[in-house]
Design a protein around this nucleic acid. Structure first.
Lengths: 161, 161
DNA sequence: TTAGATGCAAATAGTTTGCATTTGT
DNA sequence: ACAAATGCAAACTATTTGCATCTAA
């Protein structure tokens, strides 16, 4: 875990800002960084419980709020459920793709969005500390499955959507 | 209202997909399109009530879910509260900036992000239907207010944050 | 006419808060 | 040592669901 740059950096930030490095905070951040997919508070609670059953729900919410305030993580919303928390990259960047059909989340690593954002923040006189880009549509496997269906019904019917 | 392109397009989509054009749905979409800022379900409920007190909470949630499914709107999350619903542009684009200090939301209109996204979707074999870009940091007025404070305390104290 | 949508109220999540106790510095 | 953080349980808020009624097509 110590070799996880996001984890170390996160803890350092907590410390630097004058907050205590408590067990609850460390465990929550560990869970977030290890499973660096998108977790809901309920999922985080489950993982945290496995490591330390003593930690309660309230502490998890308090940790998540703190991390959000410090821009270590960011809550995002998709498919109208409860928020998912994601760990931001060192430059405050995060981008992912969500498939409308299978709800799969694909992380987008390589992305030159910072170039655009530099211009934008200059234009509006904004100081940028981070961003989340959420792209949605249809993923490769769902797309090809659709084509298959199209092929099957050629000459017999057209798909409505 | 009829001249609001997002509103008309939204209703058309509802109709085209075989859903009824009911009073509740029309009112909710009107509210969303007129106040095209970010509204929570509670705020939407208030506005809707003003126009038609008969409409209940459940219908609002059901309308929001439908609109989300049809990519007419998108729920987003910021400052760890309940989701805010935003109306997407015709090309599925939406971008905004959120000030960490005053929570102000600034819409970003001019944005060439679609260029980047085109490349990305080709790379991953994704079909893109829309996106939300959420940038956060410090806005112009909060930024200059900070400088003012810095100036005021020069020589007497340093600010912790 | 009738399947689909609504409004209500009750049920169910999801999150926050108060407070006595514990813990990191 | 002691302010800050925790865990618990209760309070609160947000959302969903069942069902009788209504309404758009």
């Amino acid at each position: 875990m110590k070799d996880n740059i996001l984890y170390s950096r996160g803890l350092q930030k907590v410390k630097d800002c004058g907050y205590k490095l408590t067990g609850a905070r460390q465990t929550v951040l560990q869970v977030l960084c290890e499973n660096h997919i998108h977790l809901t508070s309920a999922e985080i609670y489950q993982y945290v419980k496995e490591r330390n059953p003593k930690i309660g729900r309230a502490s998890i919410f308090r940790a998540l709020d703190l991390f959000t305030e410090l821009s270590i993580i960011r809550p995002t919303y998709y498919e109208a459920q409860s928020p998912h928390y994601i760990v931001l990259a060192e430059d405050g960047h995060h981008a992912h793709f969500i498939c409308n059909q299978c709800d799969r989340v694909i992380e987008i690593e390589e992305c030159q969005i910072n170039n655009i954002l530099g211009e934008l923040s200059a234009l509006h006189n904004l100081t940028m500390t981070g961003h989340v880009l959420e792209v949605y549509g249809v993923c490769e496997s769902c797309g090809s499955r659709d084509k298959q269906i199209d092929y099957d019904v050629v000459g017999s019917a057209t798909r409505s959507n």
